[in-house]
Write a protein that binds this DNA or RNA. Structure first.
Lengths: 345, 345
DNA sequence: TTGTAGGCGTTATCAG
DNA sequence: CTGATAACGCCTACAA
């Protein structure tokens, strides 16, 4: 593997000219250009990306910050997988590098070093939540002008670069559908309130119920953590309310699936004794028995757009892109239309 | 954001000493050490990783080469997701960076630039297949001593760093199970032969059948490409053989699921009219109706081990780690025990 | 169109 | 234990 100096020598030019050829910036004589390229080819010379980055003072890399989720294979999760795929597509098209950044539970959140150490030029934050330390870390980032983009998370009171989906509307439509099916006592197994999308779903839920003149029964509001396990665990509470609950709206498909399994073990038949709805429209939602009614969220698109927004603002100082909010879509399947409707009260 | 020079000045030491403090290599007076650290803290100084890499001549990152799969969200695939999660875990524990490298169909395969340009210190190849250009690219890599590790792929005649699973045994056991269920005419919907794991499955299939004294009927050997769509398409062929086929062994769960959907549309009931078995033990295999009999493959572990092997050989020249082959495990569910056994011939 | 030379922030070697 | 001082490989004015 030859060095630039060797190439220069062999081609009878200066090292600077070799660089110019590889950067294709300055206009130059075609003959020298070819001579350099041939010499490089012969010597097996490849410019060092590291040195380029060093000299240019940029990393050419965008980082994807992944939350720490204990005992879960993150990529095996529809949510992260799709977003990451979308980011991957955009990043590849832009010729940047994609660095995966795993957050660890031990060290406290501080994104600044990533930028200051030039590891990344920008970051996309996945699974961010509104907890004091996270908010503070992002504020620091924003203050120092480091570009980043949030996906599926909104921070009240902040004007940050973000790509969200309309979960208020998605939930609203879903609950309206449940009501239309004749369900009145609709339990809501939500995720943690630290996520704006959880809060948005609750809004949609309340809105639909209020509109239908159905009073909210706070005892029907349960909280899980978006894991299958937490859905499974919730089955016990739901079963305890049996007869008092027509339907359950779970904040994501994973919880819905866990819930269905849990209910089944307790002798309650999902789709027969009780209606179940999920959220996300994951692959799995098509495979359950009965197939899950759910809400489609364009995660792939969201990832792609987040990356593109980052490219758009990297380099410039104007960081005032208006927040993006993509539409969601109700997907009706069989889990919400009870095969055997419960008897009239 | 202060510079090293400022820190040095503020702490009353030389720049070299500042570096030493941050590398914690040379023994030094605790007082100066603290003085430097304080100055750095006050000035908000962070060493530039880029400069470090440049100076050290290493990138500190390992790349994961991902195949180009048109129209598929790669990460939403159980196979890649799990392996990647495993790699991620190991990489995080080792303090390295994880760079995602998307192969593109246009440019021809050449991994050397990645190393020569110092983008990566080593690579893990996912979804590699035995095609001339790929083999050649890997040979070049091996020849020039660049460390890499293959996952779930073996190249006949090469002594490369690889982590594989025992697919011969997995398939053998699966087919034996099908035979034990009374199935005799067992179709095999395999993936492309360019993948060693496809060939291994065929071996296991042949072995089990031979051992049972069942002649191989070549007309029962179909080829898909591991996509759900290809499984769906195969349903037509299988249905055409109806009555002549007791069971179908699909090379992965995705194809099995597509096949089940396709058969159902053609009026053939999976698990009732015909037994179906998959491979991989993906999450989805638990959710189908009926649940899929399949073979568990420790993909997560394989990814983790691949990364660790890379760390083990990066830096050293001895690259003669013996290939690793992990055990697979038969998972029996309901899709292979026909509810309504076919009538005796 | 091309050459020259300074600088980028660290590491590492060598003195002291 | 600490301070100079060459590399490291490339980029980029500035000159010619």
């Amino acid at each position: 593997m030859g060095t630039r100096k060797q190439v220069a020598e062999s081609a009878g030019v200066s090292e600077a000219t070799v660089s110019r050829v590889f950067n294709g910036v300055t206009p130059m004589k075609e003959s020298t250009r070819r001579r350099v390229l041939e010499a490089a080819e012969a010597l097996g010379y490849t410019p060092s990306v590291i040195a380029q980055r060093f000299a240019r003072g940029v990393s050419g890399t965008i980082g994807v910050v992944l939350p720490y989720v204990p005992k879960v294979h993150l990529f095996s999760t529809y949510y992260f997988s799709e977003i990451l795929s979308g980011i991957g597509e955009a990043v590849r098209d832009n010729g940047h590098d994609l660095l995966l950044l795993f957050r660890s539970p031990s060290e406290d959140t501080d994104y600044e070093p990533l930028y200051k150490s030039q590891k990344v030029d920008g970051c996309i934050m996945l699974g961010a939540s509104d907890r004091p330390d996270e908010r503070k870390a992002l504020q620091a980032l924003a203050r120092s002008g480091h570009p980043f983009c949030l996906v599926n998370q909104h921070y009240e009171g902040e004007q940050w670069n973000e790509v969200d989906a309309d979960h208020v509307d998605g939930s609203y439509r879903l609950v309206k559908h449940l009501l239309a099916c004749g369900h009145r006592r609709i339990a809501f197994l939500n995720g943690q309130a630290a996520y704006s999308n959880s809060r948005d779903r609750l809004k949609g839920y309340r809105l639909a119920l209020a509109e239908a003149g159905v009073a909210i029964d706070e005892s029907l509001l349960l909280e899980g953590n978006y894991s299958r396990t937490s859905g499974f665990a919730a089955a016990r509470s739901i079963a305890g309310l049996r007869g008092a609950v027509d339907a359950v709206f779970a904040g994501n498909d994973r919880m819905a699936i866990g819930l269905m399994q849990g209910l089944r073990e307790l002798g309650v038949k999902p789709g027969v004794d009780i209606a179940i709805a999920g959220y996300d429209d994951s692959d799995a939602s098509r495979l359950t028995d009965p197939p899950l009614t759910t809400v489609h969220v364009p995660f792939f698109e969201m990832g792609r757009i987040a990356a593109e927004r980052l490219f758009a603002c990297t380099g410039r100082t104007e960081e005032a892109l208006p927040p993006e909010k993509l539409a969601t879509e109700l997907i009706v399947r069989q889990s919400t239309a009870l095969a055997r409707p419960r008897e009239a009260d």
